[in-house]
Simulated scan of single mutants.
Amino acid sequence: MRIITLNANGIRSAESKGFFKWMLLQNADIICIQETKAQLYQLKPELFCPTGYYCFYHDAEKKGYSGVALFSKKQPDKIIRGIGWPDIDAEGRFIEAQFGKLSVISLYLPSGTSGADRQQIKFKFMDRFLPYLQECAQSGRDYIICGDWNIAHKEIDLKNWRGNQKNSGFLPEERVWLTQLFASNHWLDAFRLLNQEAEQYTWWSNRGQAWKKNVGWRIDYQIISASLKDKVSAVSIYKDERFSDHAPLIMDYDYELGSNADNASAKVPEL
């Protein structure tokens, strides 16, 4: 089972840079997208729900802002749009697809980079999300939570860690929060199970030639329930082409999602 996650920084922008052509060559079972920055009516089905996939979007109420999507070769048993928190759901930050015992989530955790108010919103989300994840861990389901978590966990996860300790995304409180999550033994950073190397970044600022110099951050994750620890078989970050200021994070799992007898055909993204 191959799962790809990408913060597209505008799905229409990513499409114009060749993302969907590349995506169709990857033989991925599930693709999770964050920051679609579009309303469903603005997207042409033939471009934004490619042949072979069932496509699901959860838009922000504000135009040109946030939004998540999930594409799947197999039709999910259930789709859940939103986490059940009106303030977060209005920003289109959560969509879950259930396949038997497995839940795959496309998550766009709030960023605090635009100012103190947004940082407080981020902290409040984190305060609520940890108990939510604890409930998920006790549910007996398998989880793969894909997306832009907007936090670099350790010093190895960003180039200039010394100069960013007071900046959103690498604040001590944020890093401790992730440490607490992983220390519970219920959740794992799937990428680091197989790759412990430095300079494994998924996001680069558009300033100061950060991409060219590889001055990046690893803030995109596939965080998995402990039950899947031995199922991660390959991990990679795709950087040969650039579709966004983020890079696609690709992971393979030794996990049977099941076959879809009626091949998904191009269709209008479901409302």
Rank of each mutant, 00 (worst) to 15 (best):
P86L: 06
D262A: 14
Q200E: 13
S13I: 07
Q39D: 05
M251C: 14
V235N: 03
D220N: 04
K78Q: 14
Y53R: 11
N260S: 12
G92K: 05
E199P: 00
C146F: 04
E174R: 10
I144P: 11
Q200K: 14
K231Y: 03
L109V: 15
E197F: 00
A152E: 06
G112Y: 07
K212R: 13
I30Y: 09
L70P: 05
L24N: 13
Q165W: 01
G52F: 02
Y108W: 09
E241L: 11
D254T: 12
S236Q: 15
I95Y: 09
Y253K: 09
F129R: 04
D230N: 15
P76C: 06
C55F: 09
L181K: 02
L107S: 04
R128A: 09
G163L: 12
L249N: 04
Y132I: 08
R81Q: 13
I224D: 10
M251N: 05
I31M: 13
D59I: 02
K21W: 00
S259W: 02
P110D: 01
C146V: 03
N7P: 11
S103N: 15
V215T: 09
L249T: 04
Y221A: 08
E15A: 15
T5D: 03
P172D: 11
F191M: 10
R162I: 08
I83P: 04
A8C: 15
E270K: 14
D117E: 15
A116F: 04
I11L: 14
Y201M: 05
K122I: 07
F56T: 08
P248K: 11
F48E: 04
G216A: 10
I144D: 01
W85Q: 12
G82D: 10
K21I: 00
K239F: 00
P110F: 07
A69L: 06
H58E: 04
F191G: 03
S168Q: 00
V232S: 09
Y65T: 08
Y221M: 09
R128C: 02
M23I: 00
W217D: 02
N164H: 14
I237L: 01
W22N: 11
I121V: 12
Q200V: 04
